[in-house]
Simulated assay, not measured.
Amino acid sequence: MADPLSAASFLDALRGEGLHVVEVGDWRHHNRNTKGPWGPVNGVMIHHTATKGAERTVDICRTGYSGLPGPLCHGVIAKDGTVYLVGYGRANHAGLGDDDVLRAVIAETALPADDEASVDGNRHFYGFECENLGDGQDPWPAEQLLAIERVAAALCRRHGWTERSVIGHLEWQPGKPDPRGFTMASMRDRVRARLGTKAPATQPLPAPRRPIVDLSQLVAAARRDPAATGTPVTYAGTRTVEAALVDEGLLARQRLDGHFGRDTITAYAAWQRRLGYTGSAADGIPGRASLTRLGDKHGFQVVA
């Protein structure tokens, strides 16, 4: 049993274990703390998302959906091993679970069968959603399984927990199937072995290949006049930029449609002003410096 780590310590623990971490928007202050307590924390819970595609998965886990507002976890673990931080504090990931399971996690003993839902798990667990369809056929790449191992070990190491503080959603709440495709027993074995090392890995995992945004094409698209034809300007790679502007609170989510039109230009101009640009330098036409700053923060790469 422990107080939750500060957001800074949480991030430091993950990076200290060699993980490639992407911070999404204002993740440090995105939570459901107004709906109930956050802490004491007792363990780490692993889920699968039943979704496909890192960008879509991160968006859903950050914002939630009808009837279940986000964040739906603290971090999303993509298939390439990248960890996207989408919230911190109370998150809608665990729901009600078995009080006997919680007592076993606290005591770090073998888990009993989960046969009731009476305890608020959102209060007691760090939650990580892993990109996978959960159909038993969708593969779990080695990079993703290694990232799950490192995430769990990072938090156990920081709190002084053993691998028995790591559980799956299916071990907490009756009827839940996740994660499906590997066993939590095998993952706890991996975490135990990692915790047996004298120190965290000092060499981080190679940064996964990031989505690429072509600056020249983006500029050409932005300089077209969408009013001339009455339709938005379309640019194939813009959704990545639009998603970043949405996360920055500069673009309405309903404009996340793959077009670089007037609304996106206006939002990008606001991003330029946020960086300190004024006048013609904040006209909504992307420049290398401002686009690189956006890409570094939101996980895409800029090429000429």
Rank of each mutant, 00 (worst) to 15 (best):
S6D: 05
A8R: 12
L19P: 02
H20N: 15
E23L: 07
G25Q: 13
D26Q: 09
W27Y: 07
N33G: 13
N33Y: 06
G36K: 02
P40H: 09
V41F: 02
V44T: 07
H48E: 12
H48L: 08
T49P: 02
T49L: 01
G53S: 04
T57P: 02
V58Y: 06
C61L: 04
R62I: 05
P71E: 09
G75A: 11
T82S: 14
L85S: 07
G87V: 08
Y88I: 06
N92V: 05
H93A: 12
H93F: 12
D99M: 05
D99E: 15
D100F: 08
R103W: 06
P112D: 02
D114Q: 12
A117R: 02
S118K: 11
S118P: 03
V119M: 12
F128G: 10
Q144H: 05
I148Q: 09
R150I: 03
A152I: 06
C156V: 00
R157E: 09
R158L: 01
H159L: 08
G160P: 12
G160S: 04
E163G: 02
S165C: 15
I167R: 03
L170G: 10
G175D: 13
G175P: 10
R180Y: 15
F182N: 14
R188K: 08
R190C: 05
V191D: 05
T197C: 06
A199Q: 13
A201E: 14
A201W: 14
T202N: 07
T202Q: 14
Q203C: 09
A207Q: 13
I212M: 14
V213E: 11
L215D: 12
S216C: 13
Q217G: 15
L218H: 07
R224P: 05
R224E: 14
T231I: 13
P232L: 13
T234L: 15
Y235G: 08
Y235W: 12
G237L: 09
T240A: 15
V241R: 04
V241G: 06
A243W: 14
L245K: 07
V246N: 10
D247W: 10
E248I: 04
E248F: 03
G249M: 04
L250M: 09
R253D: 09
R253F: 08
R253H: 11
R255P: 00
R255L: 09
G258N: 09
G258A: 06
G261A: 07
R262V: 07
D263H: 10
R274W: 00
S280G: 03
A282I: 00
D283L: 06
D283A: 04
I285R: 00
P286R: 01
R293N: 11
L294N: 04
D296W: 00
K297F: 07
H298P: 05
V302D: 12
V303W: 00
V303Q: 01
A304I: 07
